[in-house]
Design a binder for these strands. Sequence first.
DNA 1: TCTGGGGTCCTAGGACCC
DNA 2: TCTGGGGTCCTAGGACCC
Length: 420
Amino acid sequence: MPVAVIDCENFYVSCERVFQPRLRGRPVVVLSNNDGCVISRSEEAKRAGVRMGVPLFEARPLIEEHGVEVFSSNYELYGDLSGRVMEGLEGAVGAIERYSIDEAFFGLDAPTDESLRAAGLEIRERLGKWTGLPVTVGVAPTKTLAKLAVAAARQSEKRPGVVSLCRPRHAEEALRRLPVEKVWGVGPAYARALRAAGVQTALDLSRADERWVRGRLGVVAARIVLELRGVSCLPLEACPPPRRSVTSSRSFGRPVTSLAELREAVAFHVSKAAERLRRARRMARVLLVFLETNRFAADPQHAPAVSAALPVPTDLTPELVGHAQRLVERAFLDGVEYKKAGVMLLDLVPARPAQSGLFDGRDRERQRRVMEAVDRLNRLMGRDTVRPARVGFTQAWRTNCGRRSPRYTTNWRELLTVAA
DNA sequence: TCTGGGGTCCTAGGACCC
DNA sequence: TCTGGGGTCCTAGGACCC
């Protein structure tokens, strides 16, 4: 059965446009956390020459010249709209594989190539009507070719919205037109090696000697070669594999030198990470705390990462915060300007309902109920309604996000006003 | 002055064992 | 001249994705 993929166009920018129609037809960009880099661009912003991933301060001249509208990222809004897209798609096609915030794979079957494309078009129109977001649909014999179909659709002057590469003739034409570094799974390092060996296009790669590719770049790259030939190596995964790690980290709005502030920041990240751990119904056996200096500065770098095996697998925020405080002390060096802090929860195991340690001297069941109540309150009343005191109240180390749009769909105070 | 965050998988090399 | 061979496990680092 052919594989299909939907991919939302310029997802974050499109989300902003759903609630601010005046942004349509205008150059718009959305920034990364801390208003650092450009991570989503409208077509108009791309045409103006704003590159993906460029730091805001470097993009300033172009932004001013073309009157580009700039937004801080609003992940609550994007996450909510993503959920609506995914649910809409599931309603239309059944089981899907959620691949990222704006992409999903699914099986799509129809007797002819024409009817496949018609089915793709119907999905595109349905999602457009339900969510206001434009999506591109790619259909092909393998995931890698389906992604390539999306790239072909985006590259084409006609902007078809749906492309099928189920016919070998169509696949070959698309492969010929696509530079090798645009193939899904080919990053800068592979591209350099391939180009140096004379592999310039996706078609060249599909015709490369698979054993040579495996020897030179490894099995992952060899799989890409096969996938480009229409041999499926990456199956659809309808149920996501259990989570293996949870990270929470953030750059600071300004350099931080005090242990007290680092403790607060780390407690904040532990609290965020533990919440996600509980939502995934997992417990951690290892906790890791890391600090980083500004890697773009010429100053000496210090990027410690210290970890501890936890005595009992846990998802309890207070317990994790306690361990994290000891780790941050071990990592901290006096007199260093830190730019980033974070935590990782590793070596995750399933959270079984009554995981009470007999000898660890804590009433875990009671604490677990407290956590459930906290999570519920934060879900209902907005995040951070209840949080550990250790995260502090001023949070001077927090990030900049001066241009965030309202959280139209997830915060009562920020609902869309239809007529003022 | 200003440079994101969160994931996964694979590989190479070392330690250790028989 | 010639220096075992083959497992497993772990880890750090690299590669990729969005």
